[in-house]
Design a protein around this nucleic acid. Structure first.
Lengths: 206, 206
DNA sequence: ATTATCTATAGATCTATAGATAATGC
DNA sequence: ATTATCTATAGATCTATAGATAATGC
């Protein structure tokens, strides 16, 4: 997670900021609190990152990049379209399992400060349009062959993302409603991954 | 939306609070801002609601109730199981169309202050367990009859909620990525409702 | 010399309350 | 008399910066 186990104070501030931003969002996290968690005084946070805004961006640009690139990275191996889909669901879901609070953070920021993430998006994934167009061609070809039912590439992506992301947003509800601990949540989430594959493939099927 | 077009200052404060909380969440909305939007001074907000917390609860208890009751209200008309499912998707989705920012607000609060909504839940829907158990029996009977594939009631509900809720969380992204105005967004959301019905029914089918 | 770290503080909020005054209902 | 509304302010943040001191690299 950290850059090569760097134990400099700058890195400690980054790590503390990442953890706190993920847990409470940008607005509810103060630089005072970050400093305390990192083990320094509050002025030092500003010494390294100037403003709370820049700190946020420094911490999250790479994390957002991770997600965008994962989604855009489409395998070119000689496997069937459905197998590609299955692998994509799994790899996206597994990235979420490693960063279960990212959906919350991104949604939170999208609403309270859309410009920030929009700016990130264009820097982080300038080729998003091309990748999508390529996927769209592939999907159309499958539809033409009759191996999958007619549907738009947009709808397909929305379906997959909805099913994969939503369970992570629901973690607090599941915990409370089903009286689960962290291990129980993980169990449930892992089972849900298989369910998502089943649903998406059934949805494709002609 | 308001209680019978009440134009009292108390109601104006409620309305302003609702709008602001929905747009920016609890943490980023100040009572000063609410007062300004309602057209009074900030002390009056506290005169009527004592604390910002109580104001939030006063405004949202009923709105959360609306959603919980919609979900729990299962038709007992003599129609097929699949028709019931279709209607449930539509009525839930339509409630979301009328309150498109609710998913954001609920998720935001669940993470930053889970106790609040948990407390609301038990007040607002004490019979949630019974309703779920009833639905579970109905689903099992259909599976036994072979009209739908084996799946847990929990997975079924997660699927439906994921597909219905996520598009509303994605509104800011869709707006920016597809350069849509409000009417365009509404169009897309309405089309998506039909897609959700298709997906959920395909997922049921044996 | 330069970089890292600290103390102290200005200036801007924000919530909640006290206490004064205006409006309303008997 | 009671209720609604206002002004003013205490007290608690919080961000950002200035300026002092300690640690480090030539």
């Amino acid at each position: 997670m950290e850059k090569q186990d760097d134990d400099s104070m700058e890195q400690k501030i980054r790590d503390a900021a990442e953890r706190l931003f993920l847990n409470k969002g940008f607005a509810l996290t103060s630089t005072t609190e970050i400093a305390k968690a990192a083990g320094c005084n509050q002025a030092l946070v500003h010494y390294y990152f100037r403003t709370k805004d820049r700190l946020f961006e420094a911490v999250f640009a790479e994390k957002v990049k991770l997600f965008v690139e994962e989604i855009l990275n489409i395998s070119s191996e000689p496997i069937t379209f459905k197998e590609k889909v299955r692998r994509k669901i799994v790899s996206h879901y597994d990235l979420l399992l490693e960063n279960p609070q990212m959906p919350f953070l991104i949604i939170n920021e999208l609403i309270t400060n859309p410009e920030r993430l929009n700016a990130m998006k264009t820097i982080v994934a300038p080729n998003i349009g091309m990748v999508f167009a390529q996927f769209e061609r592939e999907l159309k070809e499958e539809i033409r062959k009759g191996t999958i039912r007619p549907m738009s590439a947009f709808d397909f992506v929305v379906t997959m993302l909805s099913l994969n992301i939503m369970p992570f947003l629901g973690i607090p509800i599941m915990k409370s409603a089903l009286h689960l601990d962290d291990a129980g949540v993980r169990d449930l989430l892992l089972k849900r991954r298989e369910e998502n594959i089943e649903i998406v493939l059934r949805n494709l099927g002609p």
